[in-house]
C-alpha cells in the first residue's frame, strides 16, 4: 500500500548529522556498503568495477554502483572567508515521502511502527518514478536486479537481537570515527537526538518542498577563538606577504650569497 499509513505511530527513527564534526572520511558510506551488501536490500551491485570495459567505443565513465550513502564536499562562502563543509547525504525517511505515494505497485512503503521508508524488492517493477520524486537523490536503481534500492536505516541491524545492544545502530553511525552521526527517535521530544537538534538548531534540507524529512542536519559552529590570539597568521595571504620578506631579492646579504652561488 503506497498510501501513507493513517495510524502512524509517533516513533520516527532517523539520523542527526553534525556538519561541524564531519571530516569527510567517507567511512559511513563505505561501512554502509559493507553492511548492506549482505543486508535487507542485498546485493548492492557495482558495474565496470575495474574500469575500461564499459563501452566498446573506448569511452569509459568509470566504475559505478549502488550506494545508499554519499559524502559531498561544499565550499561555503568565497575567498579568505570560505569554509569547506563535508556533507553526508542519504535517505531522510521523510514524513511526506512522495517517493512512496508515486509508487504504482505498493513496493515502496513507509512503516507504521517507526517511519522507516523501505522498498520491497519482490514487487518493485523498476519504473524509477520514485527516484524522480525524491528531491534528495537518495534512491539508486540497481541495473542488475532491475529494482530500486535505498537506505534501510539498517533495519536488519537496529532490531537484531543477536547483536549486543550497543551495536544496534545503523552501520554509518557505528563506524563514524568523529562521532558526527547520531541515531534515535526524532518523534520523541525527550530523546537524545531531539535534544541535540533543539540545542544546536538542527534543520531540514529543502524545507520549501515540504517533504518534512525526519533526518536533521546540525550547522557548522562559528569559530570560537580569534586566530590572532593564538599567534597564528590572520590569513594565508598575510603569511605569504611575510614570507616575501625573507626572499633573497629583499635582503642584501642573502642577495649577495645568492649572486655568488648562482655563478
Amino acid at each position: 500500500m503506497t498510501s501513507l499509513p493513517t495510524n502512524q505511530t509517533n516513533t520516527k527513527l532517523g539520523l542527526v548529522i553534525d556538519l561541524d564534526i564531519c571530516v569527510g572520511c567517507h567511512a559511513c558510506a563505505v561501512n554502509c556498503k559493507e553492511w548492506n551488501a549482505g543486508g535487507h536490500s542485498a546485493p548492492m551491485t557495482d558495474w565496470n568495477t575495474y574500469s575500461g570495459t564499459e563501452n566498446k567505443n573506448g569511452e569509459d565513465s568509470g566504475a559505478w554502483g549502488v550506494w545508499f550513502n554519499r559524502v559531498h564536499t561544499f565550499e561555503v562562502g568565497k575567498g579568505q572567508e570560505s569554509k569547506t563543509v563535508y556533507f553526508p547525504r542519504s535517505c531522510l525517511h521523510c514524513d511526506e515521502p512522495a517517493c512512496v505515494t508515486v509508487c504504482p505497485t505498493g513496493a515502496s512503503y513507509k512503516r507504521e511502527e517507526d517511519g522507516i521508508v523501505l522498498v520491497n524488492p519482490d514487487t518493485c517493477i523498476g519504473c524509477k518514478l520514485c527516484s524522480w520524486a525524491c528531491p534528495y537523490g537518495a534512491r539508486e536503481y540497481d541495473e542488475t536486479d532491475g529494482v530500486m534500492k535505498k537506505c534501510t536505516l539498517c533495519i536488519d541491524k537496529i532490531y537484531n537481537e543477536n547483536l549486543d545492544e550497543i551495536d544496534r545502530v545503523p552501520a554509518c553511525v557505528a563506524t563514524c570515527p568523529a562521532g558526527a552521526r547520531s541515531f534515535g527517535d526524532l518523534g520523541d521530544p525527550n530523546s537524545d537526538v531531539s535534544r541535540l537538534v533543539e540545542d544546536r538548531g538542527g534543520y531540514d534540507l529543502m524545507p520549501e518542498l515540504d517533504y518534512r524529512p525526519v533526518n536533521k542536519y546540525l550547522p557548522p559552529r562559528e569559530p570560537q577563538i580569534n586566530v590572532l590570539d593564538d599567534g597564528q597568521p590572520l590569513s594565508l595571504v598575510s603569511m605569504a606577504d611575510n614570507a616575501n620578506q625573507t626572499d633573497p631579492s629583499n635582503n642584501s646579504i642573502l642577495k649577495w650569497v645568492d649572486t655568488i652561488l648562482s655563478r
Binding site: A29, T73, F74
Partner: peptide
C-alpha cells in the same frame, strides 16, 4: 554554496 568535490570520481545513477 558551491560543490567542491563530488562524492565519487565517476557518475552515479
Amino acid at each position: 554554496v558551491s560543490m567542491l568535490d563530488a562524492p565519487t570520481t565517476s557518475e552515479t545513477f
